[in-house]
Each structure stands twice: as structure tokens, then as C-alpha cells.
């Protein structure tokens, strides 16, 4: 457009040079990785562990329970990647199969404790009378060290993976219950819940429609922490011989058996310990990342 076409008395503003380059459209995937690195790292590690557990038979493993007394306590080599234990079993195969037990226990406990804790927490948060009693019981459960309670519960039953899951779920559910009750107590004061009551919505519908969806975010975060904690508890129980039966290879069992030879053959303890540490770290990273992603206020404060 030429200057002559402008109305008299006006001059065109100078065209500004483009100082700021137009922001490059960043890929959605890369954007997510940059914003939540812990979710990505933790999630990837957890995914790898899950794959290892599922694909254990195809990852060059042998029968993890096959005894070979002639080949016992071999150091790591081409043939036995993580060495063999004092009964000649392949530690590599045992560690990979052990991932199945640990992950099963971790995820099942997170799920069971989540369901039990949420149910009790919802009921307690919404009914004053039950609340007082239930929360005192929960306080009592929480005052006993978790591992002691789990040992006591295991002493009542036969050792099996299923019983380990039940025992750890019982010890973990008070934490979920506290959390859910707290969220319910704050949510039931929300005007939208009061408005729902005033417009004649029944209590079960209010819980299902207005309360439960808003507890899911903190619940998911708590579930990941419980998953990690349950895996450690399972290993501890197995280590002291109160958990998974010795015939099933679990990381705790492998370490318990390798304990006697710890000073001369450290690799028997070392490899399951590394796997346990990485898995717990991964799940915790995932939980931390989820917490930051789901609760922007908390993320800013930290």
C-alpha cells in the first residue's frame, strides 16, 4: 500500500522487525517429556520391569527352580549372567521370575488397599457416627509398625503370595482411608455438594457423582506410593522368612538365601537388590510426577 492512499494527516507506522522468532510448534510428546520428566522416566522403568516379568520365559532364562548342585556358587559368566546360588540355580532366571512376584504383590496391594481404604474412607467421611469409631480403629492399626502387623497377620495363615497380598493390603489401607476421608470432609463442604443435597440428590448418588471423581487424583498418587512400599514390605517379609514361600523365587527370598554367602559371593544378594531398588525408585518417581502433574498448587509450592 502506498503512502498516498492514506488519509491526509496520517503516516504509516513503521513495520517492526521481527525480533522474537515465532515460537516453534513443539511436538506434543516432547512437550510432555519436558514438562514431566519424572513421569516419563518412572513410567518407562516400570514398563520395562513389567515387560521383563511378563516375558521372563523368553529372555534366555532357565527353570528358576532347577537345582544343579554340581554348578553351585558360580560367579557371573557368559553362561550364568548373574552367577548361580548355593543350590546351583541360575540367579538371572530367578531374579527375572522374582519380578513377577514383586510386581504382582505391588500392584495387587495398591489395588486392594485402594478399594478397601476408599470404601471405608467414603463411609467414614459421610457419616459422623461411624467416622469416630472407624477412625479410632484406623489410628490403632497405624500405630503398630507396618512390618510387625504384616508379620503378625502372616503368622495367622499359611505362607502364600495371596496371603502376603492380603496381609500387606490390611496394613496399607488405613493410609488410603485417612486420605479419602480427608478429601471427603473437605468436599462435602463444597457449595456444589450442598447444592446437590438441596436439589434432592440422594447420598449414594452424591458420593458417586460429586465426591468420588474428585478423590481419584490424590488416590492415584497414593496408590503408586503404596505399590512401592508394598514391594519393599514383601521383600522384607520374604527375607525374614514370613512371606512368600521359599519355593517361589521372589527378590526377598533370593536375598534371604544369599545372605549366608554375602561376604564371599555378594552377587547373589546384589542382583535382586538392584532390581528391587530400581523398581521401587521407578514407581516412586512415577508417583512424584503424577502428584506434580495432578495437583498444580502443590507442585508450585514444592
Amino acid at each position: 500500500m502506498s503512502a498516498t492512499s492514506l488519509p491526509t494527516g496520517y503516516t504509516a507506522a513503521p513495520v517492526l522487525p521481527e525480533i522474537l522468532p515465532t515460537p516453534k510448534e513443539r511436538g506434543r510428546v516432547m512437550g510432555f517429556v519436558n514438562r514431566h520428566p519424572t513421569i516419563v522416566i518412572g513410567g518407562a522403568l516400570v514398563a520395562i520391569m513389567v515387560l521383563i516379568a511378563i516375558l521372563a520365559p523368553f529372555l534366555f532364562t532357565q527353570d528358576p527352580t532347577a537345582l544343579a548342585p554340581a554348578k553351585r556358587t558360580r560367579p557371573p559368566s557368559d553362561l550364568y549372567w548373574f552367577g548361580t546360588d548355593m543350590l546351583g540355580r541360575d540367579v538371572y532366571s530367578r531374579v527375572l521370575y522374582g519380578a513377577r512376584v514383586s510386581l504382582t504383590v505391588g500392584f495387587s496391594v495398591a489395588f486392594c488397599a485402594g478399594i478397601i481404604g476408599t470404601t471405608i474412607g467414603l463411609i467414614a467421611g459421610f457419616t459422623r457416627g461411624i467416622d469416630a469409631i472407624v477412625m479410632r480403629v484406623m489410628d490403632g492399626l497405624m500405630s503398630i509398625p507396618q512390618i510387625l502387623l504384616a508379620i503378625a497377620l502372616m503368622a495367622l495363615t499359611r505362607a502364600s503370595v495371596q496371603n502376603v497380598i492380603i496381609a500387606i493390603s490390611i496394613t496399607e489401607s488405613p493410609r488410603v482411608c485417612r486420605l479419602v476421608r480427608g478429601v471427603v470432609l473437605s468436599l462435602r463442604e463444597q457449595p456444589y455438594v450442598e447444592a446437590a443435597i438441596a436439589s434432592g440428590t440422594r447420598v449414594p448418588v452424591i458420593i458417586w457423582r460429586h465426591i468420588l471423581p474428585n478423590t481419584l487424583a490424590p488416590l492415584m498418587v497414593q496408590a503408586t506410593f503404596i505399590c512401592a512400599s508394598a514391594m519393599i514390605t514383601e521383600a522384607t517379609l520374604s527375607f525374614i522368612g514370613a512371606g512368600t514361600p521359599p519355593i517361589i523365587p521372589s527378590w526377598g527370598n533370593i536375598m534371604a538365601e544369599g545372605r549366608a554367602l554375602w561376604q564371599v559371593k555378594p552377587y547373589i544378594v546384589f542382583f535382586p537388590a538392584i532390581f528391587l531398588s530400581i523398581t521401587v525408585l521407578a514407581v516412586n518417581l512415577l508417583g512424584d510426577g503424577l502428584r506434580d502433574a495432578l495437583d498444580p498448587r502443590l507442585a508450585k509450592r514444592l
Binding site: Q190, P191, Y192, E194, A195, A196, A198, S199, G200, T201, R209, H210, P213, N214
Partner: peptide, 25 residues
Amino acid sequence: MQVVFQDPFSSLNPRMRIVDILGEP
């Protein structure tokens, strides 16, 4: 007998569509 609350932000469930909020009563 119905009610209108003060805070227009916390008086509507953030996870529900308007049609469901108004449809509830």
C-alpha cells in the same frame, strides 16, 4: 426451595457438563 451460592466457582462441580449440572435436579 432452592439455593444460589456466593462463589460461582466452587458452586459448580468442575467435572460435570452444564447439561448434567442443570439436569441433576
